[in-house]
Amino acid sequence: MNSTKLKRQQTGRRLKFTNDDLWGYIFIAAAMIIFCVFTLYPVFSAIYTSFFNYKPFGSEFVGLKNYADTLKYSKFNLFYKAALNTLIYTVIVVPLSLLLSFSIAVMIMPFKKKTQSVFKAMYYLPGIASGVALSVVWLWLYDSSPDGIFNRLLGIFGIPAQNWLSSTKTSMLSLIIMALLSSHGVRIITYIAALLGIDNSYFEAAELDGATFFQKVRYIVWPLVKPTTLFLLVTGVIGSFQVFMNAYMMTGGGPDNSTTMIGLLIYNNAFVYGKYGLACAQAILLAIAIAIMSLFQFRLMGVDVEY
Results as ranks from 00 to 15, higher is better:
residue 81 K to Q: 13
residue 114 K to P: 02
residue 50 S to H: 03
residue 65 K to L: 13
residue 84 L to H: 06
residue 162 Q to C: 02
residue 154 L to R: 10
residue 132 V to P: 07
residue 116 Q to S: 09
residue 154 L to T: 09
residue 95 P to H: 08
residue 53 N to S: 08
residue 87 L to F: 14
residue 123 Y to H: 02
residue 118 V to E: 04
residue 37 V to P: 03
residue 106 V to I: 13
residue 57 F to Q: 15
residue 72 K to L: 09
residue 164 W to G: 00
residue 88 I to K: 14
residue 32 M to D: 00
residue 160 P to D: 09
residue 60 E to C: 10
residue 86 T to D: 03
residue 163 N to S: 14
residue 82 A to V: 10
residue 111 F to I: 10
residue 111 F to N: 13
residue 28 I to H: 04
residue 52 F to T: 12
residue 44 F to N: 04
residue 138 W to I: 03
residue 136 V to P: 00
residue 88 I to Y: 07
residue 57 F to E: 12
residue 144 S to D: 04
residue 105 A to S: 13
residue 151 N to Y: 01
residue 150 F to K: 09
residue 119 F to K: 10
residue 103 S to H: 00
residue 121 A to G: 12
residue 94 V to F: 05
residue 137 V to I: 12
residue 142 Y to F: 11
residue 117 S to V: 04
residue 89 Y to L: 05
residue 72 K to Y: 01
residue 97 S to P: 07
residue 119 F to R: 05
residue 79 F to S: 14
residue 79 F to V: 10
residue 115 T to F: 03
residue 31 A to W: 07
residue 161 A to E: 07
residue 49 T to Y: 02
residue 113 K to E: 05
residue 56 P to S: 15
residue 60 E to D: 15
residue 110 P to S: 08
residue 129 A to Q: 13
residue 47 I to V: 10
residue 68 A to Q: 15
residue 113 K to Y: 02
residue 98 L to E: 04
residue 40 L to I: 11
residue 105 A to P: 03
residue 153 L to W: 06
residue 52 F to P: 03
residue 85 N to E: 04
residue 143 D to R: 15
residue 141 L to C: 05
residue 151 N to H: 03
residue 63 G to Q: 15
residue 115 T to M: 01
residue 88 I to N: 08
residue 32 M to G: 01
residue 164 W to Y: 03
residue 45 S to A: 03
residue 70 T to S: 15
residue 93 V to Q: 11
residue 51 F to R: 11
residue 129 A to P: 02
residue 150 F to Y: 07
residue 138 W to C: 02
residue 158 G to D: 07
residue 118 V to K: 08
residue 154 L to W: 00
residue 105 A to M: 04
residue 133 A to T: 08
residue 40 L to D: 03
residue 90 T to M: 12
residue 130 S to H: 10
residue 34 I to E: 05
residue 38 F to P: 02
residue 30 A to M: 11
residue 71 L to V: 13
residue 71 L to I: 13
residue 89 Y to K: 13
residue 46 A to C: 08
residue 60 E to V: 15
residue 79 F to C: 07
